[in-house]
Write a protein that binds this DNA or RNA. Structure first.
Length: 610
DNA sequence: TCCGTTACGTA
DNA sequence: CGTACGTAACGGAC
């Protein structure tokens, strides 16, 4: 056994590194003594756990408590992997930071299924978020392990240990992301980095549990979030089937498009089409007057808006070339590169990520930013063989939520009687509806006011983003608050609470910090955070009802499914009912849309209706 | 190699 | 006093 002694805040800790089979009995003794709660972690060759049948490997498995840990050289042989597997089975409770990743690793390299690990797992990333979900830049702790350690435990140790992998990468002359498969298993700094992780998770958990607000705890969010992360981990494991020929054809097509416009731009003196500086230089040299500057660096602003308003052959080339290039990389190449041996992609679903608790989807397919209104990208994702793709989305979720949680009678009446809220706001500001039916001529302005108010904005935001003239914008925004006085009261109550206590509770009892200088954000945090929990409860109810295997992706107010064709209608109906939720007597409806095979088919179907 | 900035996509 | 994100490219700092 190799021993590494280290100090956290002057207090000694010990890392036991298992080197031979003779060291295993001591490991087993440690696990048996600490089985009630074990911190754990794995080190791997990369993040692509779905390539476990190709070149992905587990390298180390680590277990520990607050002051002592063991590192198993899992890569070196089955006997060590068996020891790790045994420990995972033996533990009564486990805690890891961002543990769903390690659960995927354990399932595929150690043979312990998610279903075995998840029910007894705690995640210090989740508990940390329940205390304070803000990023470092926002003045919060940050959610990454290093940030959490720096904030809650030991700033110096966090810095040192985080820096150690960067230093090793430098020493081995590779990029940091490429260091993981090649760092020698006996590298002392690697072992310190790895051996400290389970201790960090263990300590963080206890620190968090003492700091989660009593109200949040009482509302049961701790168990709810862990069950949700188990469900999203199952979605990650299942993955989504990729239409490989389609994606490949789009890559070829977009490459041609990109090349064509790059050539045009090159001919006009722009070498890199992504360089705003170069574009501005050419335009200025050709006598074009530029007016808009960027906020921080004060460079000429070169957005699509600016470019499309200029008559110059370069502008079209830049807009189209950049678009083709970005689409090619972000969607098609990324998915192709990240597909597993079965042609499936496994986006990373972060079940509790944003400041407001919303989920995010990153990696192989950043699903929450796929272009809407076109099926071009979405055709790449397929339902399983013999299945239909189905999207079920909540209708008007945030405004319905605002109506229900504020209890505003006018807003509630509008939804109960199926009136158009945008028309209603427009009516208050600009006079009665036209005779003979149809929408209010100023409906767009009403819509702008409705959404902007819900997001915490004022007349200027409506003016800028919806192109509403200043006078009308002022009028429609003040009309909003006059028409819906209880919404105003809710906003005021939340702002008062934010000023007094530094944050607000959502409808589900979740604590969200609010910056003192931006109290107007409180209403949006409340609505966004509470709505996220409606989607989350939908996911959990679907899982509980036994339909979890059909879920593919959660996209804020929408869940995507792959349903077997012969039962698609009935499954869509069942899951819709499970998603729907009544808040203070107001239904938040969910509407399924069944397409043919791909996600794009659903969009084509919707478009054909209009 | 790392990181801040700009830009653009979504709910 | 509009909110919340992720990704790509660029270009200066190290």
């Amino acid at each position: 056994m190799r021993l590494i002694d280290y100090k956290i805040k002057g207090e000694p800790i010990r890392i036991n590194v298992v080197e031979t089979e003779d060291d295993l009995p001591a490991f087993q003794t440690f696990i048996e003594r600490n089985r009630r709660l074990l911190g754990w972690d794995t080190e791997t060759t990369g993040l692509d756990w779905w390539n476990h049948d190709r070149d992905f490997r587990i390298r180390l498995a680590q277990f520990g408590n607050a002051r002592e840990s063991f590192v198993l050289p899992a890569e070196r042989g089955q006997v060590y992997r068996n020891a790790a597997r045994w420990a995972l089975w033996a533990a009564e409770r486990l805690v890891a930071h961002n543990g769903t990743f390690d659960q995927h690793v354990a399932e595929h390299t150690l043979g312990v299924p998610l279903e075995k690990l998840a029910p007894k797992s705690l995640d210090s990333k989740i508990t940390g978020h329940l205390v304070d979900g803000r990023k470092v830049k926002e003045g919060g702790p940050g959610l990454a392990l290093e940030d959490q350690v720096a904030f809650y435990i030991d700033r110096e140790a966090a810095k040192e240990i985080k820096g150690s992998m960067t230093a090793i990468a430098k020493e081995l002359k590779v990029k940091k992301e490429d260091v993981w498969p090649i760092v020698p298993l006996d590298h002392p700094d690697y072992l310190l980095y790895a051996g400290a992780d389970p201790m960090w998770a263990y300590r963080l958990l206890h620190i968090h549990l003492n700091r989660i607000k009593a109200k949040t705890k009482a509302s049961g969010l701790l168990s709810w979030e862990h069950r949700l992360s188990h469900s999203t981990a199952r979605m990650e494991r299942r993955g989504v089937l990729l239409d490989v020929p389609y994606a490949e054809a789009r890559v070829a097509e977009l490459k041609e498009e990109e090349d064509k416009w790059v050539k045009v731009a090159n001919g006009l003196g722009v070498e890199k089409i992504g360089s705003g500086r170069q574009i501005a230089a050419v335009l200025l040299a050709d006598g074009i007057k530029l007016t808009k500057k960027t906020l921080k660096s004060g460079e000429w602003s070169m957005t699509d808006d600016v470019l499309s308003a200029i008559e110059h052959p370069l502008c079209e080339a830049i807009i189209k070339g950049k678009k083709a290039s970005k689409q090619k990389g972000t969607w098609f190449e990324n998915a192709l590169k990240n597909r597993d041996s079965q042609g499936r992609i496994h986006p990373s679903i972060n079940s509790l990520q944003c400041r407001t608790s919303r989920m995010t989807i990153t990696g192989a397919f950043p699903a929450q930013t796929v272009p809407k209104g076109t099926s071009y990208v979405r055709h790449m994702l397929l339902a399983d063989e013999g299945h239909n793709w189905c999207c079920t989305d909540y209708g008007n979720m945030e405004l319905r939520g605002l109506a229900a949680w504020s209890g505003d009678p006018t807003m509630l009446k509008a939804f109960h009687e199926n009136l158009d809220l945008h028309d209603m706001t427009a009516t208050t500001a600009f006079g009665p509806m036209p005779e003979g039916g149809g929408h209010h001529p100023m409906r767009q302005y009403g819509k702008g006011a409705n959404y902007t108010a819900c997001f915490g904005g004022g007349w200027n935001a409506v003016h800028q983003q919806y192109g509403v003239p200043e006078k009308e914008a002022r009028k429609v925004v003040s009309a909003f608050w006059e028409t819906y006085p209880r919404a105003k009261a809710l906003s005021k109550r939340l702002m008062d609470q934010a000023r007094r206590q530094g944050g607000i509770y959502t409808a589900t009892g979740r604590w969200i910090p609010v910056d003192v200088e931006r109290p107007y954000a409180a209403l949006n945090y409340f609505v966004q955070g509470s709505c996220r929990d409606i989607t989350a409860q939908g996911i959990l109810r679907i899982e509980k009802a036994g339909y979890g295997d059909f879920m593919r992706l959660p996209v804020h107010d929408e869940i995507c499914f792959s349903f077997p064709k012969e039962h698609a209608l009935e499954l869509a109906r069942e899951t819709k009912l499970l998603m729907e939720y009544t808040v203070n007597g107001l239904l938040i409806p969910a509407d399924p849309e069944i397409g043919e095979r791909s996600w794009g088919d659903v969009i084509d179907l919707e478009n054909s209706k209009h």
